[in-house]
Design a protein around this nucleic acid. Structure first.
Length: 424
RNA sequence: GGUGGGGUGGAUGAGUGGCUGAAAUCAACGGUUUGCUAAACCGUCGUACGGAUUUAAGUCUGUACCGCGGGUUCGAAUCCCGCCCCCACCGCCA
């Protein structure tokens, strides 16, 4: 949610930034300002009337106490006339507030200054590359064939049990998942993140707070009997730990990490990109989340990118880091870096992490604030998060890039978690 | 699912129609005292949206908020209705 004061004071700036993000309805800014002017005017009128009737009520109380019954009755008659206009103004005000809110909620976050122009993924900016693309043997296979060869994921069973996109991990495949999750969490907690296990279903307030609603309504699984949404990422429940909270400045930054299953309907996506583990409806992900002082959030974003980069490097996978252009960024984000690892057998880049600074957008919606020690004022925090990491495509890349005649060679740091260095 | 109890400021907790935006205690913050720490004492100490004033920090001021929504009343934390949540016990259950 954008700050109404920013919209009111710098409408041209807001429009320019929205255009940068490829937002097609700049007229919404003017509509919101007009509604806001109405809103304030109505509020003033209503408050004037309420003030009158409050004063009258006090006077009546005083008169009753003094036993001046008749004067009190006269006052009562006076107040009765105010009731109607009070009621009307209340209704008008509520209507205008709702209109304003309905539009304001649709505005995406403004992109930060560093975000490149562009509309499509092709216009994202490669900021760094690392690792080396391995030379695979001539008979190299894509991960879906390797999965069959080593019998580590049963896609058909998943289809029978639930539907396509719900893989069943088994044997070494299941253990590899567990090893990766444990390794990622240890890596994060070693860097000062506190581990959480959140609920996998959230209520509408939580989904709204982090910006999934109303933007991604159709992308989440929904349980109508209880009005719960299956989480698309642990970001949603974990960030909401601090919904409606006022932190102390000294509490910042708050650093959290969580493993969760993630559920995405991926409505409307199909084709070549969905093969194997490239796109699934349920997947495992370890997330990192920070709640930060506004002055520090961009420094912290860089630190989070470096943190994830270290993790990807430790897996020995070739990777690149992209700074997303305005048109490719998420609804709530001010700036986003995507991590992609190279799948040697598919010969393409697979997204495995997305690290974003949401600045005050989520914090505004969820009323996550801190008390400034010097001024004593409350200010909204900034929120950030990133995947560290999403498993399926990491697994795909590990399988494809590690394939040898003897089996799949795994990175050294996984050995303590997996129990051996090779899937065979 | 059943029965009973309960939801008040950061926490505990008083408050059953006007003098209550809310006692008291604790915590927190500022200060005095102090060899250090502690203690003691004094003071400050909710949020949101408006308005006035100020270069600004601020100051003054209005309205709303005692789980949520509605109602009664000139006036509601307090009375009535609906809902939600929490706790205890019972039932069911991994």
């Amino acid at each position: 949610m954008l700050d109404i004061k920013l919209i009111r004071e710098k409408p041209d700036f807001v429009k320019e930034r929205l255009a940068h993000k490829n937002y097609g309805q700049p007229e919404h800014v003017d509509t919101i300002i007009a509604l806001d002017t109405d809103r304030r005017s109505l509020q003033q009128q209503l408050e004037a009337v309420l003030n009158q009737s409050n004063l009258a009520a006090k006077a009546i109380g005083g008169l009753m106490k003094e036993g001046k019954k008749e004067e009190a009755e006269a006052k009562k008659a006076e107040v009765a006339g105010m009731k109607e206009s009070e009621k009307q103004l209340k209704e008008q005000l509520a209507a205008v507030e709702k209109q304003q809110e309905d539009i304001a909620i649709q505005l995406p976050n403004l992109p930060a200054a560093a975000v490149p122009f562009g509309k499509t993924p092709e216009e994202n900016e490669v900021v760094r590359e690392g690792g080396t693309i391995p030379e695979l043997p001539a008979n190299a296979q894509p991960h879906w064939d390797l999965i069959k060869k080593y019998d580590i994921i049963d896609f058909e069973a998943g289809v029978k049990i639930t539907g396509s996109g719900f893989p069943v991990y088994k044997g070494q495949g299941a253990k590899l998942q567990r090893a990766l999750v444990a390794y990622f969490l240890d890596y994060n907690t070693a860097a000062g993140y506190t581990e959480y296990i959140p609920p996998y279903m959230v209520n509408a307030e939580s989904a709204y707070a982090t910006g999934q609603l109303p933007d991604k309504e159709g992308q989440m699984y929904y349980m109508p009997a209880d009005e719960f949404y299956m989480i698309p990422t642990a970001e949603v429940p974990v960030t909401n730990v601090y919904r409606d909270t006022i932190l102390k400045e000294t509490d910042l930054p708050v650093k959290m990490t969580a493993f969760s299953q993630c559920f995405r309907r991926e409505a409307g996506s199909f084709g070549a990109n969905v093969r194997g583990l490239n796109r699934v409806h349920q997947f495992e992900k370890v997330e990192i989340i920070q709640i930060a002082h506004p002055d520090q959030s961009h420094t912290i974003l860089d630190a989070m990118v470096a943190h994830v980069e270290g993790l990807v490097q430790s897996l020995g996978l070739p990777y690149r880091i992209l700074r997303l252009c305005g048109g490719d960024m998420g609804f709530a984000s001010a700036i986003t870096y995507d991590f992609e690892v190279y799948s040697a057998a598919q010969q393409k880049w697979l997204e495995v992490s997305s690290v974003s600074n949401f600045e005050s957008f989520q914090a505004n919606r969820m009323k996550c604030r801190f008390k400034n020690t010097e001024t004593g004022k409350t200010q909204v925090c900034h929120t950030l998060n990133g995947s560290s990491l999403a498993l399926p495509r990491i697994v795909a890349a590990l399988l494809e890039n590690g394939q040898t005649d003897e089996g799949i060679k795994l990175p050294d740091m996984l050995v303590p978690y997996f129990g051996k260095g090779m899937i065979s």
